[in-house]
Amino acid sequence: MISQMQQKSESPDTKGKILEVRGLTKRFGGIIANDNIDMDVFVGEIVGLIGPNGAGKSTLFDMVAGVKPSGSKRFPDAGCVRFLGHDITQLKAHQVCRLGLARTFQIVRILEKMSVLENVTVGALCRTSEVYEAEKKAEKICEFVGLKDRQNLAAGELTIEGKKRLELARALATEPKLLLLDEVMAGLNPSEVAETLDLLRQINKQGITIIIVEHVMQAVMAISDRIVVLDYGKKIADDTPEAVVKDKNVIDAYLGSEDA
């Protein structure tokens, strides 16, 4: 269903670069949230982005998506971000979204007073100027993510699981080529996590590249083709899930090094 709207020519195994991050640095006062990060993401991949709390994962998302972190100016202090060949370092969030990069927020930002369907419609309006058309598309997406039976509820009435799902639906409605998911599985029970993983695989099969920040380790290990690990703003590992769990730097970051 998404693929119809998507008009994607590349198959998932075409290894073209979709996102290229070079030397990205972001400081908040004396704290370096992102320290000279280089990262590539290829078309069709699912990349897991992990790291201890405060490692700079959400900041990296904000920088890539052009969102202003609170209490700071919008743009990175150094480095550049390229998306599908465009330099998006200085672009605003709405311009980045138009290019096909959508994101969800760690702390959900749903429009509480609108209905679930209206929330998704707002996302769909990114690609059409007709509300009626957008509503039709939103209905399909609600069905796809399993919100159909709740689509007329006020979004504020949803459970946390519903809200996370709604954020995903709304991001999908903007027809992204790259989806940044910030802890979409936090606070979900194991069966809900399994459902979400299933959903993410389906989305990925339709040709949408995914970067996922997650603390639920089994989930992120199960779904990712590749894992990038951040610690204190620096990239400390970038490899397959199997290799990353054995990496000494990663183990030190999570469990504390012996000499610390």
Partner: peptide
């Protein structure tokens, strides 16, 4: 209406 509810979300949705 989206801007009223959440400007950051609105911007991230292409508005």
């Amino acid at each position: 209406l989206t801007i009223r509810e959440d400007e950051t979300a609105a911007e991230s949705l292409g508005i």
